[in-house]
Design a binder for these strands. Structure first.
Lengths: 193, 193
DNA sequence: ATGAGCATGTAACTGGTTACATGATTTA
DNA sequence: TAAATCATGTAACCAGTTACATGCTCAT
């Protein structure tokens, strides 16, 4: 039971919610989890195959029905145990790479205008995502699955909401600072080390 | 001038600040940028080689002096132009993978305790990083390089500070919610779908 | 003399995306 | 009948980390 790439747990976790096919998995990631996790087909299908081979998942064939044939995967008791063990393991920090911050760090007097553009783009993204979180949270609160699932789901949304609010505030302030800098004659002299 | 992996810009950007060796580059990433960017030697040295081959960087050999021989790289005018072009290009979204949120999403009644542990660990990290940002910002404000560089540097720190503050608040609330759930008898019935 | 830090580089591996190949079914 | 969507899978590629190989210098 060697340690596996995160994809395996991410796939196993999803089929633990309810049985689904590789195609369903992809849809679920793209529609519901896209803001904190994503997977590609190139990873999903091999992962499902391996999970089945090791007895963590089992599949049943669903023939005919709309679209081609489907292979619907569900988690086994052994898989449930394996998932639970992973959930209890400490969270491994994922490598951070924030391109916007890197560009800001490298920017000089001549780069202020494009940086402001980037910030304005980030602001739009954050604001529209904020709307999405608003809508989704109220939907979840009504929908009402079991209390644990509901709470867990709401906590992930709350993280998204707070982080977008924080982003909006930071961006607004950053744009202000950069506008000040643009009109400040002192900053114009690029060689004022 | 085909598009390159981000590493190339990340390396070029650093040597645009002041000439340095591959080893210096690594130190700089590990010490100053580690919270929003990182690079490994396995990427740095090949990147420097390629940047030099294409005329974006040039090196001079520094023999003897403490440690083995050094190859100190500096940016060329052509490299400066190339970097500036990249800074102006829209920021590409980097794939998000937040393992903590994923674990929360998959957690069931039996997993609440380990999840709280993860949150407590995250709280510690956020709080200690907050202290670091505090200390660094005041150092930067005194240090006073040119006004543009100072502002850029402070903006990246401000992002870190705000995002850690946000994390602390979210985590505190999340722990509270989960503690409530633990003592709530309704939640104990895992099959209350 | 030993270990920490300076210094450069390569090879093997891994985790991941993208593009390709194929074909059914539904809907406009 | 064409486009969108359903559906599965593989091969080629890419970006990145880790481990390895080597050797110097400085402080204890």
């Amino acid at each position: 039971m060697a340690k596996k790439a995160k994809t395996h747990y991410a796939v196993l976790g999803l089929i633990s919610l309810f049985p689904m096919s590789g195609y369903d998995l992809k849809k679920f990631y793209d529609r519901s989890l896209r803001f904190f996790w994503s997977e590609s087909f190139g990873q999903i299908y091999p992962a499902l195959k391996m999970l089945e081979e090791e007895g963590f998942a089992e599949s049943q064939h669903e023939s005919g029905a709309r679209g081609g044939d489907r292979k619907v995967f569900s988690i086994t008791p052994k898989g449930q145990e394996y998932l639970r063990d992973w959930l209890a393991e400490p969270v491994e920090p994922n490598p951070v790479r924030n391109e916007l911050l890197l560009k800001i760090f490298f920017a000089r007097a001549g780069d202020i205008k494009p940086i402001i553009d980037h910030l304005e783009a980030a602001l739009e993204v954050a604001e529209s995502r904020l709307e999405f979180y608003q809508a989704t949270s109220s939907a979840i609160e009504k929908e009402n699955p079991n209390p644990v699932m509901r709470t867990m789901h709401l906590l992930t949304l709350d993280y998204g909401r707070r982080s977008m609010e924080m982003t909006v505030e930071w961006v607004r302030n950053a744009i202000e600072e950069l506008e000040k800098l643009k009109t400040n004659p002192e900053a114009k002299k690029e060689n004022s080390q």
